[in-house]
Amino acid sequence: MFPVETRELTKRYGEHLAVDRVSLTVKSGEIYGFLGPNGAGKTTTLRMLLGLIRPTSGTVRMLGQAPGRLGEIGALIEGPAFYPYLSGRENLRVLARYAGIPARRVEIVLEMVDLAERGKDRYGTYSLGMKQRLGVAAALLKDPRLLILDEPTNGLDPAGMADMRALIRRLGAAGSTVVISSHLLGEVQQICDRVGVISQGRLTIESTAADLRGGARLRVVADPIDAAAARARALLGEDRVRVDGAGLDLDVPHDRAAWINAELVDAGIAVSELGVRERELEDVFLEMTHVG
């Protein structure tokens, strides 16, 4: 049994196909990044997982159960939403009542998101970052086995973002399964075990972040660049050499750097820079979603 499993999940609004036959699987204990450009169908998919939106077709199983049975699932969907006339603490107490959770859990989650000091203040007076942290606290109320966080670092300052990443890592290390939707790809790259990319309603790929990024490449800046490219192609083959501006990206292991350097110098080419270039998740994302 997977914590999250969808089959051919589809949502149609009239003529608009918001989510198109999405079949995704989240494994137990992993941190799963759910990526996609604005309007790709991320939040609609997450809402269907939680039973807030009914699918047009397809199936959802969450911890082996139909959507809407959320006893061991915590979620923050599309930004925090609370009652502005209640304090942060009172908001969580109201939610704890709905969930049948003892009030002492409220204090624990307020500590976890570093809001205990401001818990007595009215929610309406909170900054965006504090609201976001309260949203995460609400998601943690049930000490969930499965946590779904939609853009959890929105509005947080760099320190807050680092705290949030550390919290998510701790939850993952403690055995919770976490699904994160985020547009901050560097953040996803840092904490996620696997990634699913959705574009125009369709899940285009599901893989580990490392596999998506592929292996590191060798970056060479040389003069003249045409001669360097010709020599590199002769050594490595046509498809492993790409000219990028004033340099070359070579698809070779980084321990061949000295050999490449010697070959280019022997051919009378001046090498001014040689280094390892790691492919960022953002590059992969942009290629897959045809953005930029």
């Binding site: 809402r47 939680l50 039973g51 807030l52 809407g68 049975r69 959320l70 006893g71 699932i73 915590g74 979620a75 969907i77 599309e78 930004g79 925090p80 939403a81 609370f82 009652y83 502005p84 939610l95 704890a96 709905y98 969930a99 049948g100 949203g135 609400a138 998601a139 109320l141 049930k142």
Partner: peptide
């Protein structure tokens, strides 16, 4: 209606009650 205005239906329902 306040639940719609503040968007709190999702907050309440994701705590698990039907």
């Amino acid at each position: 209606g306040g639940e719609y205005g503040w968007g709190t239906w999702k907050t309440v329902l994701t705590q698990g009650p039907s």
